[in-house]
Design a protein around this nucleic acid. Structure first.
Length: 471
RNA sequence: GCUCGUGUGGUGUAGUUCGGUCCAUCAUGUCGCCCUCUCGAGGCGACGACCCGGGUUCAAAUCCCGGCACGAGCACCA
C-alpha cells in the first residue's frame, strides 16, 4: 500500500467539540499507523447559514495539535481555493454534466420526487454558460439559480438526483469579503479538494453516506476514482446530548454560558480547561473504534480513562468541606511528644516524590462536619484522637486500631477555597478550606477522599478557586 | 413516506470477511472479599449478552429469508 492521505474537515463556525475530536483522533491515528499524512481543511464555503468565525481557524489548528500531539501536515482553507472550485464548476458545465437550474428549490423538489426532468436540464451548454456568468457577476440574485450535477433521474434515492453543487450567496465572507457571488456546497467543494489533495481514505460520520454517493457520481463524470470511505455511527454522551456548535454559540451569546470553555460545555477547550488529558480523549475514541453503530456513552467512560492516566502523577492535597475548627488536646501525662511540624507524602505510592510539610504549632485543626461526630478517628498521616467535648484529644501517634481515617488540616496550613462543581446547567459551589502548600494555578490535584480538581485561580486575597474534575 | 445504515452483558468493544478452535474477548459498571494511614490506587472473585422467527448444515453470533427496533439522509448547512 502506498502512502495514505487522510483529512479532517471541520466548519470553522466555532472551536472543536468533543464530537469533532473523534475525527481528529481517528484520522490522525490512521495516518500514524500507516505512515500517512492528514490534511486539516476548513470547509468555510457557507457565508450565511453557518458563517465561519474568524477566530476559530487558529483555535482549531491549536486544538488539533493538542489532541494529537503534532501539527496537521497540511492546512488549507476552502475560501482560499475558490478560483479552483469555480474553474472546475465551469468545466463541468462546459462538458455538459453540470447545468444551471433556475427553478425554485420547491419546484425542483417536486419534479425530482417524481423522477421528472426540470425544464433547465435540457438547456444548451452555451446558454448554461451565459447563466453561469450571470451568477458569477452577481446579476442573478440569491436563490435565482443553482448549478446541478447531472445524474440519472431513476436513482432510487431521491436525494441524489441532480444534486446541487453551487449556489449564490451575496453575504460577504468574513475572510474574503464579497469577492465571490457563487459558493460551492460541501459535496462539490469537498469532492474537488479531496481529489486535489490526493486524499486516499475518507473517514467520516455515517450521516455523510449520501455525500459519498453524490460525490462518487461526480467523480465518475470527471473520470476519477473515489477514495476508500469508512464511517462511524452517531455518538451521544449522556451528560451532554448532541454537540451542536450553532446551538452552543447561541447559548453563549445569550449569556447562558461564560464562553466556549465554560465547564458545562462539551467543547475541547472546556474539557482541557477542566483538566482532562488529551491522552484520555484519544484513548476514548480509539476504544470505540470505527463501528457504524449509534451509541450512547456516559461521561464516566472518559473520566475512568482520565483517572488512570493522571492518578500516578497527581499530588494529593487536603480539602475540608464546610470546615469546623477543633482544638487539639494534649494528654495530661507528658509521654506523648509532638513537634511543630509533620511530613506527609505528596503521593501515597511515591510516584510523585517529596513530602508536604505541615506546621502544627497552633494546635487548632479543621475537620469536615461528618468527621467531628465520630468518637474515635485517626487524623490522616498524624495521630489517633478521641473526640471529647468538642476537643480532639491525642491518644497515640502510632496507628493503634482500625478506626476511621479522616482528612484534616492545621489551621495555619489552610486557606479559604471554593470548589466549583458543574452540574447539568448549573454550577454548584462547595465552600471549604484547601491545604495551602505549593499550590499553583492550572495544577491538577487530588483532594483526598473527595476527588480530582484543578486549581483555577489563586487570588492575592480571598478564596482559592478549585474546579471539580471527577472522582 | 422514500432511501441508506446498524442490531453481542447496564455501557462500550472483540469475534461476523473464509460457519466448528466461542458453554463468546477485553474494558467500564455494580456487588463481595483482600490490601492500603484517602471514600484514591492495587489484587482476587462474582454478576451479566449474540434483537425476534424461520431456513441451510453434522455444526450458525457468523450464511439465507422474513419481521421488529433504533439511527441517519431526503437543505440553494457542514
Amino acid at each position: 500500500m502506498g502512502e495514505v492521505t487522510l483529512r479532517f474537515a471541520p466548519n470553522p463556525n466555532g472551536p472543536l467539540t468533543l464530537g469533532h475530536s473523534r475525527g481528529v483522533v481517528i484520522n490522525s491515528e490512521l495516518a500514524k499507523i500507516n505512515g500517512g499524512r492528514v490534511v486539516l481543511r476548513f470547509d468555510d464555503t457557507d457565508t450565511r447559514v453557518k458563517p465561519p468565525d474568524p477566530s476559530a481557524y487558529s483555535q482549531i489548528e491549536e486544538e488539533y495539535e493538542w489532541i494529537t500531539g503534532r501539527k496537521a501536515d497540511v492546512v488549507i482553507r476552502a475560501s482560499d481555493r475558490m478560483p479552483v472550485y469555480l474553474e472546475y464548476a465551469e468545466n463541468m458545465i462546459s462538458e455538459g454534466f453540470g447545468y444551471v437550474c433556475r427553478c425554485t428549490a420547491q419546484e425542483f423538489k417536486s419534479l425530482r420526487d417524481n423522477k421528472d426532468e426540470c425544464p433547465c436540464r435540457g438547456n444548451e451548454v452555451a446558454s448554461n454558460l451565459t447563466y453561469w456568468n450571470s451568477m458569477i457577476s452577481g446579476e442573478t440574485p440569491e436563490g435565482g439559480a443553482v448549478v446541478r450535477v447531472k445524474t440519472s433521474l431513476d436513482l432510487p434515492n431521491p436525494a441524489l438526483r441532480d444534486w446541487p453543487a453551487l449556489r449564490i450567496q451575496h453575504t460577504p465572507h468574513p475572510l474574503v469579503g464579497d469577492l465571490y457571488k457563487v459558493w460551492p456546497l460541501l459535496d462539490f467543494q469537498s469532492a474537488i479538494e479531496d481529489r486535489l489533495q490526493g486524499v486516499t481514505h475518507i473517514v467520516r460520520g455515517k450521516d455523510l453516506m449520501d455525500s459519498t454517493r453524490k460525490q462518487t457520481l461526480l467523480y465518475e463524470h470527471f473520470g476519477w476514482e473515489y477514495p476508500e470511505t469508512l464511517y462511524w455511527g452517531r455518538v451521544k454522551v449522556l451528560e451532554f446530548g448532541g454537540f451542536s456548535t450553532s446551538g452552543m454559540k447561541a447559548n453563549i451569546s445569550e449569556g447562558k454560558f461564560s464562553g466556549w470553555d465554560d465547564p458545562r460545555l462539551p467543547t475541547i477547550s472546556a474539557l482541557r480547561k477542566r483538566g482532562f488529558s488529551s491522552d484520555a480523549i484519544r484513548e476514548f475514541w480509539l476504544e470505540l473504534g470505527l463501528t457504524q453503530k449509534d451509541i450512547s456513552v456516559p461521561m464516566q467512560s472518559i473520566e475512568a480513562k482520565n483517572s488512570s492516566i493522571i492518578d500516578s502523577m497527581t499530588e494529593r492535597r487536603s480539602f475540608i468541606r464546610s470546615p469546623n475548627e477543633v482544638r487539639l488536646g494534649l494528654p495530661e501525662k507528658g509521654d506523648l511528644h509532638i513537634g511543630n511540624s509533620i511530613s506527609i507524602p505528596k503521593h501515597p505510592d511515591g510516584t510523585v516524590t517529596g513530602d508536604r510539610t505541615w506546621l502544627i504549632g497552633s494546635r487548632t485543626i479543621l475537620l469536615e462536619k461528618e468527621d467531628i461526630d465520630i468518637a474515635s478517628i485517626r487524623l490522616k498521616g498524624f495521630a489517633d484522637v478521641e473526640m471529647i467535648d468538642g476537643l480532639a484529644k491525642l491518644s497515640s501517634i502510632e496507628r493503634s486500631d482500625r478506626r476511621t481515617i479522616a482528612h484534616w488540616l492545621p489551621i495555619e496550613m489552610s486557606r479559604e477555597a471554593i470548589l466549583e462543581v458543574p452540574s447539568g446547567n448549573d454550577i454548584d459551589i462547595v465552600m471549604g478550606a484547601i491545604e495551602d502548600f505549593e499550590l499553583a494555578e492550572g495544577m491538577i490535584i487530588q483532594l483526598e477522599r473527595v476527588g480530582f480538581a484543578i486549581i483555577d485561580d489563586i487570588p492575592r486575597d480571598g478564596a482559592v478557586v478549585l474546579r471539580w474534575l471527577h472522582r
